[in-house]
Amino acid sequence: MRKLFMPLLVVATAMFAYAPFMIDQAAYESSMGLVSKIFYFHAPSGMVMLLSAVVCGIASALYLWRRNPGADRLAMASAELTVLYGLIVIATGPLWARKAWGIWWDWDARLTMSFVGWLIAISYLFVRKYGGPGSDKLGAALAVFGTANVPFIYLSVNFWRTLHPKTSVVPTLPPLIRGPFWFSALALFLMYLLLLTARLHLERQRAALDALYLAEED
């Protein structure tokens, strides 16, 4: 991954630079107008957020039962990125909702669920930062619980009324929208991969530094 980092960074930058042109040329959604363009940013960010949360959960389980320090670093990095991408989703959603539904926020199933998931990811970071010694295991248990909780949050909020467009929207996109959509999704995913690599590298260096300090003290 380290050899690929620079080339991928160049590719991702180029993709980000080109994405606005592509989104501009995409078919104009008549009922929503210009606001519908948020979709190219909002939905892929949501996908990456989910992916990142799943990575965090699996890595935490690995750390809890296998004591693999690499898994812990991966969990930490993906939790941070879950919060970052969650912020994008939560910031862009209301902009669209204001136009489409006439309100900034609604306690609908998908919104509640994203919000709760985002809160859990934040509380994970909170534990890691302020938990003191042993917070790595604390955080891991939290992440495992959070992941197991996802189906229940999904079910319980789904029995409420729902406003948010269904998941069936993405596979049935018209061709003129599909291209730019997956382009944006790929760009955001690449950014996730790059950020994750950079973050993992930083954590590795930190761990190495800590090990050196400990060796010096002995």
């Binding site: 509380s123 302020y130 949050i153 079910l155």
Partner: peptide, 23 residues
């Protein structure tokens, strides 16, 4: 139980517990 040894456990418990018990 797992917060017993953590710092600022009084603050931490509600912060961790409430999002988790939402369902």
């Amino acid at each position: 139980a797992m917060l017993v040894r953590a710092r600022s456990r009084d603050v931490m418990l509600p912060i961790l517990l409430y999002p988790m018990t939402v369902p």
